[in-house]
Each structure stands twice: as structure tokens, then as C-alpha cells.
């Protein structure tokens, strides 16, 4: 029963990682940049949801919508102001800009909400705990919602990128930006839309993360951000099913590592597995191997 309990916790944590990893992987696929500020957009989303719940007393659904809308705007503004001028620049310059953006968001949050951790209200997801096997196995509402949200988002995104016109345009741009723009695709707008979707998902991830782990502070987003980035690489960066698989595996490995090997070494185990996987499959689990042309 402990095993099953840990497995469910792992899947739940993995689902959160998967949703965050989607933001990384989509942006990487399309703009070829590591958006280090993504983890901090999550934190901002969680804070905004916290405020709408706590200070405006709005219902949870409104909090979700407000947080998603705010993060979408934030993502598009960040892309337009900071990343777009660097479209042609070296990737390292863009990376440093993203890091600067990450500092900026963290310090903005620090100024607005202060350094003291806030406790995320449990009213966000008010679904009763599910009790199975005569109370031996308890699944919290947050866990259920997280796993469900992950499935919905995955199915939705897969359909979107394979069926919708904008989704197809996104795939074109990530395949070959030059050819896409020759075919009449507005590259800049497509990249903006990608950032918008990624950031909206970040808001969802932030709310789910803080529903399961309710301490909210300006650095809340950075470690899950790094882990999710690892998950994206693990599954093959640029690949949407890869982000899903990588996130889930990472979450399960982390929870099992902490439960059965050592609590302190949980993170080390996650990263060690990542290294082993990358050595065997240098472009991740589902990543396409890049052929080198001379």
C-alpha cells in the first residue's frame, strides 16, 4: 500500500513537472532558447491566484482564470520586450537575458509580497480526499485534480498542434523558421502565441504546485523550474510527448528515491538518472537524434 501511495504521489508531482516542462519544451522547440524565467512565471501565477483568493475573495475558478490571463500577458510582454530584440543574437546572450528576467521577476515578487512565505489557501481545490481500501490509501483532491489536469492538457495540446492551424504553424516554425516565413507564416506572432500558451500553462502549474505544497515565496518557482527543465531534456527537448514522459518519470523517481533510498539525496538521484539517460540516449528519451552534416 505504501508503494501505491508513493506511486500516486510521484505521478502527481510528475504531472506538475510535466506541465511546467511543456512550457520549456515548446519555447525551446520554437525559439531555440532556454527560457530560464519560466519557473518564475509559475511563481507569479501562484501569487496572483493567491491574491485573488485571499484579498478579492473570488471563487477558485475566477482565481484560475485571472492567474492564467495575467501570466499570458506577462509571457507575451516578456517575449516582446526582452527576447524579440535578440532573435538573431547568439544563444548565450538570450540565455543571460532570460536569467536577468528570472532575477527581475523574483525581485518584483519580493518587493510586492515580501520575503515571508505565504500559505497557499487550501480552498483553491476543495475536493474531498478519496479514501480507498478501507482508508488504507488516501488520495487528496489536489492530487486527483493535478493528474486530471495533466491528462486534459496533454490531450488538448496534442490535438492543438496536430489539428489547429496555429498549432501546425507552431510545428512549422520549430522545424524551419526560414521556410515557414516563406510559406506565409507570421513567425513573430507564432512565437508570441507559444509564449502565451506556455505561460498560461505555467499559471496552472503554479496553482497545482502550491495546492500540493502550500508554501509560497519568491523562490518557489526556481527549483521546480530547474527540475521541469531537466524533465524536458530527459524526454527530449522540443518534443511534447517527451515532456509528458520526462515529467512523470522524474516525479516518480524523485518520490521513490526519497522514500526508499534517502530523503536528502532525492535530488541527486533525479539528476544522476538524467545523466545516465543522456549518456545512453544523448538527445533524450523521445528526442530526434540530430544528424550532423559536414
Amino acid at each position: 500500500m505504501i508503494f501505491l501511495d508513493k506511486l500516486i504521489t510521484g505521478i502527481s508531482l510528475g504531472s506538475i513537472y510535466a506541465i511546467i516542462a511543456l512550457g520549456y519544451t515548446m519555447v525551446y522547440g520554437i525559439a531555440k532558447m532556454l527560457n530560464f524565467a519560466h519557473g518564475d512565471v509559475i511563481m507569479m501565477g501562484a501569487y496572483i491566484a493567491f491574491c485573488t483568493l485571499q484579498y478579492l475573495n473570488l471563487p477558485p475558478v475566477m482565481a484560475l482564470i485571472v492567474a492564467m490571463a495575467a501570466c499570458t500577458v506577462m509571457g507575451v510582454v516578456i517575449e516582446g520586450l526582452a527576447y524579440r530584440p535578440l532573435r538573431q543574437a547568439a544563444s548565450l546572450a538570450v540565455l543571460i537575458t532570460a536569467i536577468g528576467m528570472s532575477y527581475l521577476l523574483q525581485n518584483l515578487a519580493l518587493m510586492i509580497w515580501g520575503a515571508n512565505p505565504k500559505s497557499f489557501p487550501g480552498t483553491m481545490i476543495s475536493i474531498p480526499t478519496l479514501s480507498l481500501f478501507g482508508g488504507q490509501l488516501k488520495i487528496t483532491g489536489a492530487t486527483l485534480v493535478t493528474i486530471l489536469a495533466n491528462v486534459v492538457i496533454m490531450v488538448g495540446l496534442t490535438l492543438f498542434t496536430s489539428r489547429a492551424k496555429t498549432g501546425k504553424a507552431m510545428r512549422c516554425v520549430s522545424e524551419d523558421r526560414g521556410a515557414a516565413s516563406l510559406m506565409g507564416i507570421n513567425v513573430n506572432r507564432t512565437i508570441s502565441i507559444t509564449f502565451a500558451i506556455g505561460s498560461a500553462l505555467a499559471a496552472v502549474a503554479g496553482i497545482l504546485l502550491c495546492s500540493s505544497y502550500p508554501t509560497l515565496q519568491p523562490t518557489t518557482g526556481s527549483m521546480p523550474g530547474i527540475k521541469a527543465f531537466t524533465a524536458a531534456v530527459f524526454g527530449g527537448i522540443g518534443s511534447i510527448p517527451g515532456a509528458m514522459l520526462g515529467g512523470l518519470l522524474l516525479g516518480i523517481i524523485e518520490i521513490f528515491g526519497k522514500a526508499y533510498i534517502s530523503t536528502e539525496l532525492g535530488d541527486a538521484i533525479v539528476f544522476a538518472v538524467l545523466i545516465v539517460v543522456l549518456l545512453v540516449r544523448p538527445s533524450g528519451l523521445l528526442g530526434k537524434p540530430v544528424r550532423e552534416k559536414v
Partner: peptide, 22 residues
Amino acid sequence: ADYRMLVYAVVLILVMIFTNNP
């Protein structure tokens, strides 16, 4: 005091944009 890291972040972004935008 409180603003220094904020200033640092903004300066970092601006320097990157100014030195790398063609």
C-alpha cells in the same frame, strides 16, 4: 537596499539587448 537586485536584473537585460541587437 531593496531595489538593488531589481536594478541589477534590469541592467543585465538592457546590457544584453544593447550589445546584441543588430
